[in-house]
Design a protein around this nucleic acid. Sequence first.
DNA 1: GACTTTGTTTGACACTTGTCAAGAAATCTC
DNA 2: GAGATTTCTTGACAAGTGTCAAACAAAGTC
Lengths: 210, 210
Amino acid sequence: MAMATAESERPARVSGIDKIERRRIALAESALKTLGELGYARTSLREIANNSEFTHGVVHYYFRDKIDLISYCVRYYKTKCARRYDEVVETAGSGDELVTGFLAKMIQTLVEETPMHKLWYDLRAQSMFEEQLRPDVEAIDQLLEEMIWRILSRYADLTGTAPTVDAPTAYALVDGLFEQAVVGYAANPDKTPDLLTDRLLQVLPKLVAA
Amino acid sequence: MAMATAESERPARVSGIDKIERRRIALAESALKTLGELGYARTSLREIANNSEFTHGVVHYYFRDKIDLISYCVRYYKTKCARRYDEVVETAGSGDELVTGFLAKMIQTLVEETPMHKLWYDLRAQSMFEEQLRPDVEAIDQLLEEMIWRILSRYADLTGTAPTVDAPTAYALVDGLFEQAVVGYAANPDKTPDLLTDRLLQVLPKLVAA
DNA sequence: GACTTTGTTTGACACTTGTCAAGAAATCTC
DNA sequence: GAGATTTCTTGACAAGTGTCAAACAAAGTC
C-alpha cells in the first residue's frame, strides 16, 4: 500500500507497462467519447467512468488527476487525426483530383466525427484559460498546420503554381471555414457540408498563383 | 449616519424598470469581467458576486438562473462589439486608408480586450454543447459577419473592385485569422499583433478582384 | 501451498456548485 | 411619522465535484 499516491514511481515490469498503457488507452477512448458528447466543462470523472466498463476509482489509479487524463486524451487523439489526408495527398494525380479527394475526406470527418471536432474546438478554447492544456493544444495545432500545408504545397505542385500565403495563414483560413462548419453543423446538418465544400472551392484557388 | 450626507453618486429617482435594468447591466459588466478572466466553465455565480459590489443572492434577484445571466451578458456584449469598425469604414478615403485603419483597430481590440475575445470563442464553443446559448451566439456571429462584409464591400468600392467571396466565407476567413491571434496572444503577446497584421495583408487583396 | 505485488471496488472526505427562502434593511407611499 | 413594497443579506439545502484511502480481488512469485 505504499504506492497510493503514485508519484513518478514506475512499476518496473515491461509486460506490466504494456498492460497499463492498454488500460490508459481504453480509459482515454471512453473519456473521449463522453467528452465529445458533453464537452470539457460538463464532463466529470464519474461520468467518464460510468460510460466505461470501469469504476471511478480506476481512473485515479491510471491517471494522476483530471488534467492528466484530459491531457493524455488530447495527445492520444492527435495521433489519430493529423494524418487523415495523407493518402489523398500521395495518390492524387491532378489538382482537381486532390481537391476532390480532400473535400470528400473533410466532409466525411465533419459528418462522422462531429463530436471529436466539437471537442477539439472546445479544448482549444479551454487552453486559453487552463495553462496546463496549452502545450498539448499547441502541438496539435502545429500538426494540423503541417497537414494543411502538405495539402496546399501538393496542390500547388500539381497545378504548376506556388502558394501565395505561408503555412500559418493557410491553416488559419481553412480552419476558420471548418470551425464555422462544425458550429453550423449542429443547427443545419443538411446544408452545412455543401456550404463548406462551396466555400473551400472559392478559397483554395486564391491561395496559389503561377 | 451616512444617510443625510453625500448622495452625489446615487441617482435621486429613477423609474423602477430603469433601475432594475441598471442593476442588471452592472451585474452583467461585473460578470463579463470575471468570465473574461476565468472562462465560462470556471466562473461560478459566487465568483461573479465576489468580484462585484453585490452578494451572491442579488444575482438571483435579478436573474432567473445562471443561463439567464450568461445569456444577458452575451446579448449585452454584442451591442458593444459589432460596430467597432464603423467609423473607419465611413471615414476612409482610400483602400489603403481603410486597410490601415481596420488593422489598427483590430490590433487594438486584440490587445486591449483580450479577455472579451477569449470569452467569445469560449462561449461559441460552449454553444455547441449547451443549446440555450445557441440563439445568442448565432446572433452575434451574424452581426460579426455583417461587420466584416461592410468592411470588405467598402474596400472593394474604394479600390474599384468587387468581392470574390460571399459574406460567410469572408467572415470565416478573417475570423480564423483573428482566433488564431487570440489563442496565440497568450503565448506570444509581442509577436502576435505583427503576425496578424502581416497575414491579413496577405489575405485581404485576394478577396477582391476587378 | 503461502506471500507479495498489482489491480479494482467501494465508500468516504472536503469542497464547490446552483438554487432558494427567511428575514433584515432600505425605499417608497400615504 | 407608520405601513407596504422593494431590495438585499445571510445562511442553508441538495447535488455534484476531484481526490484519496482502506478493504477487497486477482495475478504473479517463491
